[in-house]
Design a protein around this nucleic acid. Structure first.
Lengths: 359, 359
DNA sequence: TTGAAAGCGCTACCAT
DNA sequence: ATGGTAGCGCTTTCAA
């Protein structure tokens, strides 16, 4: 690995001009067969690879798309002594895994879509929203930026947006000056509710969530509320579970067949257990559904009906949005939504053999 | 988003020379406070971000590290009608998920390590080993290449290596002309065996693998063989399972307490079931261990003792290797190994309350 | 401390 | 079809 060969080296060795080499390499313009042959030979010989920097400099584009993700911090289990460890899976680890697979899908979706349009992607996991230099640096080497979640400060974002187009993904505080992509989660909640009511004769919808609602959860509840759903908030603490059990019993008595729409599969599994404690049979007394279609829900005892929001598509759509913006810089900021899918399983009353039902 | 501001724009607006702006931005050389202030102001005003291409061109380095991964193709479940689907988890999907989380960890490890040394990373999932242009392109925009698995043809690799240093990760056909990183999997197998024999009184070690051994598996078996292990190959087909059951019964009768070292957690779980069918109690008649420490093993009935090879560290180590190479281009190609960890659980005879044991 | 200017490797335009 | 050449935006001498 000496000084890497340049186009000039190739030209000299081949006995043709730099311009001709450039044309040959880019397949632009006509190049005589003899020239092409000679040039190709010296390319091989010298191991020539054109410099992306030089190309980018003259063409004013880098051929790269940047993906900024919020870093997920995961607790690693304590390692006890050299090479041997006693391991216990922990909640924190599980949550981290869910986030990882989510981000992983976004990355892969973006990578694939970027590849389709001839771009490479570069990624940065941002630990700290004030870590500006990181994002700045990235902005300098890409044609466009996909920012997932709230990894980046709003004002930095606007600064960067003056240089490269920015597409937000699943941001909670998305401002309308940027293009924005998320899943149609509220639509999913609605579909789910509709399914429960129409197909499984649920008479009372209940939206089950944590003690404080996230933006997504609020949106979902808004939709569900219109369909007559009530809200049941479950704290993280195990201590408060008896209350929840009581509430479930209560509602069952008051209103007949329950449809418990939980805001995550994790929560859904927990509610499954609580319903059992409440003496409710699932799905007969209470149909229970999750959200996000994680493995945990697929492994649950009555498998959990859930809403799948393909993060793969999220990533891909973000890249497509970027491409549109790139080719049409002046148009209004747009909002894209990736469609969701309701995955019907036993926890809502479907029989494993029953055919799928349409919306 | 007009034409992005250049250093010249900043200089003009600030009323100082290009050179001074450059020095201010890079913190190199002395710049008077007044100059700094004026320059900083116009940077903000113009939303100036220095062009990585231009920088790269002059400095002859891109500040990027490329990560090439073999694409994992996963079967997506058939979607049945609009937005509703009946889902069944499939083996193919499970395998894909394992690969994904493995690759995901490598990416995150690499990203993090790269960040430490001031580099960004770019990734390419290569669908087809002959997709040369993709990798070529990447080679043109990075300071170094990390190639995972057998994603890239050997001869292309050597071509590229003339331009950028290449570090191989988990390649089966790694040639000694490149730096190379993998896990100490064979060491792990050895440690596992040792643990089984010394701590749990296993009298007969059996290495359980698929019908054709991968390179890793061969390495592991080589080690185990020295410790007296025999080989038991299990085909993917369920049909042949009775034979395996018979084999297990046979060996148990012949040689006393069995130590079944399986080449993956998936296989381990399967063997768990087969041992049960064979009427063997686990871990009393047969201690069973997996490999790779996946979720499936942690969820198994007697939780599976396994060997964890932190792919996070793989990625990080690869980047470190690259950095060494970058700062010392002439040294001999090196082989790096990330240490493994034996995770002791019930399937080998450990009590969940028992303290961890040292090697 | 500052500024002028020579490239870095490449593309694209203009002659030929 | 081919070659000469003017930049692209930046860093880095070298003088001042």
């Amino acid at each position: 690995m000496n000084r890497p060969a340049t186009i000039a080296d190739v030209a000299r060795l081949a006995g043709w001009s730099i311009a001709t080499v450039s044309r040959h390499v880019n397949g632009a313009g006509k190049v005589s067969p003899e020239a092409a042959a000679a040039i190709q030979r010296s390319i091989e010989e010298l191991g020539y690879v054109p410099s992306a920097s030089a190309r980018g400099l003259v063409s004013q584009q880098t051929g790269m798309i940047g993906l900024v993700l919020p870093a997920v911090r995961d607790e690693s289990p304590v390692v006890e002594s050299n090479n041997l460890v006693e391991y216990d899976a922990q909640t924190a680890t599980q949550i981290a895994e869910v986030c990882h697979s989510y981000q992983n899908d976004i990355i892969r979706g973006a990578e694939s879509a970027a590849w389709e349009i001839g771009h490479a992607i570069t990624i940065a996991a941002v630990r700290d929203p004030e870590a500006n230099s990181r994002v700045r640096d990235m902005a300098s080497r890409v044609d466009g930026l996909v920012v997932v979640g709230d990894a980046v400060e709003a004002n930095l974002l606007t600064h960067l947006a003056r240089r490269v187009p920015v597409v937000l993904v699943d941001s909670t505080r998305h401002e309308s000056i940027h293009d924005y992509v998320d899943s149609a989660d509220a639509v999913g909640a609605g579909l789910l509710a509709q399914h429960l009511v129409e197909e499984h004769g649920v008479t009372q919808l209940v939206f089950v969530a944590g003690t404080s609602l996230t933006a997504v959860e609020r949106r979902c509840f808004t939709v569900l509320e219109r369909l007559g759903a009530t809200l049941l908030q479950v704290s993280d603490a195990t201590a408060s579970e008896p209350e929840v059990v009581a509430a479930l019993v209560q509602r069952r008595e008051d209103t007949g067949r329950l449809g418990l729409v939980c805001s995550s599969d994790e929560l859904g599994v927990r509610v499954l257990r609580l319903a059992e404690q409440a003496g409710l049979s699932v799905p007969d007394d209470a149909a229970i559904t999750g959200f996000d279609d994680c493995r945990i829900g697929r492994a649950a005892k009555p498998r959990l009906t859930s809403v799948r929001q393909a993060p793969l598509d999220l990533g891909a759509l973000a890249v497509e949005a970027l491409q549109r913006r790139l080719s049409n810089p002046q148009s209004e900021p747009q909002h894209y939504e990736v469609p969701i899918t309701v995955v019907v399983r036993e926890s809502c009353g479907a029989h494993s053999t029953s055919p799928p039902v349409s919306a």
